[in-house]
Each structure stands twice: as C-alpha cells, then as structure tokens.
Design a protein around this nucleic acid. Structure first.
Lengths: 345, 345
DNA sequence: CTGAAAGCGCTTACAG
DNA sequence: CTGAAAGCGCTTACAG
C-alpha cells in the first residue's frame, strides 16, 4: 500500500510497455486508443497507484477543472446551504471548487484578481458583486462568470441565476394586503444588491398599482445586527408598522427575535413578519417564518448546467429566473382581525 | 484596461529588457535580484497586466499555495462558521482553499484520492474522518493533514486542533448536578467521532467519579432529524430525562424545538437542554442555549499556524487543545427547584 | 491506433 | 546579480 514516492505517467508507460502518450490517452475520455490498450494501462495504473497530476494536466490542457466561487458572508444560511450544494453538484460533475472569500469591504480588486491566475473553468459569484473591470478581464481570459442569486448592471457580459424576486415580492404584498395590514414596511438589504432592489420594486409596485399608500421603509444591511437595529427603530416609532417584509430570511429571523424578546410581541398576531429565501430555519417551529421559497436545488442545477454549457463554448451569457412559491406559516396571519384594527387600543 | 490576451513572463522580460529568469525572481520573495531590477520589472508587469500563472508555478515549484478542506455537512452552523473563517484566514496568508465535499456516506476513498492529484500544501479535515490508507498516502506525498474539531486514532501521523471536549463535558455535568437534575441524558452523535465519544466520556466520568448513577443515553446522529427523533423517544419514556446534554449545538437546537413545540415543555424550567460549540444561534433569544463555547477564532488561527509551520518542514504532527468556557443561558436552570423534585407529580 | 517531439509557463541549479 | 538551459508532468498535433 505504501508507495515510497509519487508515481508518474512514465512509470506506468514503462511497466505497461507503451508510451506516455498512450497513458495520457488512457485517462482521457474519448481519446483515440484501442480498448484493450486502455484496459491494460488502467490496470497497471491501479496496481502501482498512478493518477494523473492535475496541475500538469491543467497547464497543458488549458482547463483546470476548477471553478471559483466568490463568497461573501456565509452567516446567511441561504449562502451556506447554497455553497454546500454547489460544491457537491460540481464535485459530481468532476469539478473542484476554489473559494474566493470576499474581504470585509467587498471583493477588493487586487484580491480577486487572483481569479485570473488560476485557470478557472468558471467563476460563480454567490450574492457578490463584480467590478466591470474584473468582468472584462474574465471575458478576455475566457472565464465564464455566473452570478448566483444576483444580477448585474452588465447583463451582456455575465450570466445569472436568480429567483423570481419581483413576482415573489408581489405575492408577499398581496398576502399582507389580504390579511388586512394597514402599515406594511419593507426592510431593505442594501441598494447595490438586485436581491434587495428588485424585491422592493415588486413589493412597492403592488401597492402603487392599487392606489394604496406606499409601504414604509427601513434598511437592515443584510446582516443580523443591522436588521435588529432596524427593527428597534421601527417598533419605537409613534406609529409602528403592523407587518414587516424583510428582503431575506436572515434579516427576518433577527426581526422576529427582537419583536418577541425585546418588545414582547406575539409574532403572527401583534405583527406579521415575512422573509425571502425559505432557509431551513424558516420552518423551525421556533420561527415558523412565512417566506418566499427559492428552490436552491434548481438554482444550483441551473448554475451547473450553465457552467458546463459555457465550458463547451456556448454562446453568450444566459439569465435564468427560477420560479419559487410563497410558503405561509405562523409568522403572518391569513385573515383580517375579527373586530377593530390592531394597534388601536 | 482591456488586454486582448493573457500576458506571459516572456512579454514582461522582452519589454523590460531582461530574461524570464529575472521576471521570475522579481515575483519570488527573497530571490537574488537587484532591487532596482525588481522595481523596473514590477513596474512593467503592472503596466501590461502581468501576473504569474499559478498553475505553472505550482508545477515547477512543487507547491500549490492551495490547501484542501474536506467538509462534511455544512448544515451544522459550527462548520459553516468555521469554514467561513478558515477560508478568510488562509486567504490572508496567501493560500487558497479547495473544497472537497464528502459524499453522502462519508468520504469515499476514490473521491478523496483526488486530494493527491493536486499539490496541496495541506489538507484540513473539518470534522471528517480520514482513512488510514489515505493518511499514508498524504504522508508519502508530503501533504500535512490537520484534523479540525476531531482527533484520530492515528495521532502519530496527522495533526489536530480540537476544543477541550473532556473538560467541557465535565463542566456541563457539574452544572447539571449542581442544579439538582436527577435524570440527565447524553445525546451522542456517532461513535466514530471523537467529538462525541470524548464528550460522552467526560460527561459520564463526572458521575462515575462521584458514585452517581450513569446518565441515560440516546443517539442523534449529529443531524437535526436524528436529534428530533431521539428527543421524541426520550420524552415519551415512562420516566423521561430532566436534562439533556447534546453532543453539539446543532442537535441541541432541534431538541429544544421538539421539547417546546411537540411536548409543550418550558425549556429551562420543565427540562434543561445543553449543547456544545456555542454557535451564533445559541445566543439568539429564541433559544438561549447553555453551551460550552469552542473559540472558533483561536481554533482557526491555530490551524493556520500549524499548516504554515508544517509547510516550512516542521517536525512531526502536533495536537492542540483549545480551552473554551461554559456559557450559561436560559435553557438550563442554575439552582435546584425550590420544593419537590421535578417530574414527580 | 501509436509514438517521438514539441510545448504549456513557470522555476531552479549552474555558470559566469 | 544575471541569463541560458533544463526540467516540472502532462497533452497534443504530426507522422506513420
């Protein structure tokens, strides 16, 4: 079992009585080699423990079989879940994942430039922005870029896979209006993120279309602390909201905690809270968070499909919107309150 | 800004009037090159957008500047958090992280063998087991292996960074006994994991040392579903436990949910629940989980330090145990109940 | 189907 | 301090 040093193609070739070219072909799908020759080479390779050196292979083939994933903050369980499944999906397709953690203040150019030093087959950006200069360079280097759960101002250059932000937010608005809420509020993430702006636009649009007054607005910065602070500001207002739609579940969970623990509210009766994503925690009984479900499996499968297609030299960028669905749970009521409106006594 | 194709060392050399050797030296810390020469080369490189190809560099230098991280299930927020910080820490040290997701039924040999095909500077295993055959091969290939949050049966071959499993579990036992619990239970993960067995040993040892009856035992398989099922079994017993120590927070959170939502128990009064890790969620008001805190920052820093040291060709494997501390929260009571013991009426 | 040769883009002794 | 040459371990036209 113990080999005293690493085995090379040369060793296999020698032992099998063939050239290193043949060894290479034996390990290359679809290469022109006699089946019997391949069988024998593979046999010898297994016997002496040979595997092609992937670094060398990358250098000659120009492909690395590595995709980069630029990640921001994995605190958000939606990202953790997505990364988990993305890496499994890519592994199954024979691709490895190289992580590019964004630095504190967003993906610093210099840092992310490293992307180009590896010969990535693709670069996936998990809810992370891409400077247009880096987008350019990726294009020059023939590295397809796919934004996951975010779109870009530059749709002609990079692909994207997102949920139905607009439709989901409208469905949420409809749900809150049907339940008789009078003072709804949108809690934004930040304005650079399409996940925040498109959800806000869809939400606000529903009210606008019906001539209803526009919802209130706060900003939670997509962080737990930010959302908690925003909730405190809202709930100490003279006329606080009776429903809060947070741009994602990560913030909504913080909102529930603060409303319940610090203001003694019964979430789902005294106030409604809605999120977006339907992370696993949303269904935990401690939260029972109403949320618009983004199907991570589908988003991941689509991301993989695009990466593979672009690898084959497919056409231009593609933009895929995955349908989700509104999941109603205990954090929102379904009907208007029986008698007088809330917050009036 | 747009370069039409990728720039090579040769291009820089030509433009700067030097050899490619000089270019290489300019980008190699500590290489023997005149400061003025280096300055000029770097200047030209920046001008035309040159960065060394890391794949080629790996091939010649034998080092990849990539560390592999074998990950199991990122559902457990402790792992998500750890991975997040590990990748940032390594990035800061100029190392990239390549993800090796374990397949469903543990790290299948064939899959993980790929580790060896890259020239990893180190392999970190996040609560994941390593077969001794792979451990051998890593050693032959000179790839240091560091187990994070787990130890191994093979301490002479691989390094490890863990929390104080034994001490932490004893502190938890002491806490529960001091609060007057009579029917404590340990919820195991699975018996291949030192994080489960060592915590069980520490916990049980406290009772044994004092001549107290041994705690009850259930198995939650380190998953949310497994822990929920275990909790249901326990709470439908004729004589259910009055305190449950779960081998990690991930299971403890599920235990709280089930006890509260399905059995109507007031956690912290009717029953005590304790975890291990102190994940961020443990401090959320919805859970207020008493837990033994494992300092992720320290564990990550230590892992990095070991990886770096072993990269410099340090001596044998090192085993580091990081001290934590018991964090008391509302999920456990601190004093014995005033009158008669619980669950007696 | 197969092998000899060139080459991927670097780094590293070796001379100077 | 510097450059020419060899080499890292593969793959890929090119002949045969």
């Amino acid at each position: 079992m113990d080999e005293s040093s690493v085995v090379r193609a040369r060793d296999v070739a020698r032992k099998a009585g063939v050239s290193t070219s043949a060894v290479s072909r034996a390990f290359t799908a679809g290469a022109s080699i006699a089946p019997e020759t391949r069988r024998r080479i593979i046999e010898v390779a297994e016997e002496i423990g040979y595997k092609p050196d992937l670094i060398a292979r990358s250098l000659t083939s120009g492909r690395s079989n590595i995709v980069g994933i630029g990640v921001g903050n994995l605190d958000n369980p939606f990202f953790a879940d997505s990364l988990n499944r993305l890496s499994s999906a890519f592994a199954t397709a024979g691709l490895r994942v190289l992580l590019f953690p964004a630095t504190a203040q967003g993906a610093s150019e210099a840092q992310v430039h490293e992307v180009l030093q590896y010969r990535l087959d693709a670069l996936i950006l998990l809810s992370t922005n891409l400077s247009s200069s880096l987008a350019n360079q990726c294009r020059n280097a023939q590295i397809p870029v796919i934004m996951y759960n975010r779109t870009t101002a530059d749709p002609g250059r990079v692909s994207s896979v997102t949920g139905n932000n607009h439709g989901g937010a409208r469905a949420i608005a409809a749900h809150l209006v049907a339940a008789g809420h009078r003072r709804p509020c949108f809690m934004a993430g930040h304005d650079d993120a399409s996940t925040s702006t498109m959800r806000e636009e869809g939400f606000g649009g529903y009210f606008r279309d019906r001539g209803l007054p526009p919802p209130m607005r706060e900003t939670g910065h997509f962080t737990r602390e930010g959302a908690a602070a925003a909730t405190r500001r809202l709930l100490t207002l003279p006329e606080p909201p009776d429903a809060i739609f947070c741009a994602n579940d990560h913030m909504a969970l913080a909102t529930i905690d603060v409303a319940r623990a610090e203001f003694g509210l019964d979430v789902g009766r005294d106030i409604s809270v809605v999120g977006f994503d339907d992370v696993p925690m949303a269904s935990w009984p401690s939260f029972a968070l109403t949320s618009y479900a983004q199907p991570v499996d589908e988003m991941v499968a689509e991301t993989l499909a695009i990466a593979l297609a672009l690898g084959e030299g497919a056409t231009g960028p593609v933009h895929k919107v995955i349908e989700g669905r509104l999941v109603l749970r205990g954090s929102t009521r379904r009907l208007p309150p029986a008698s007088k409106p809330p917050h009036e006594g």
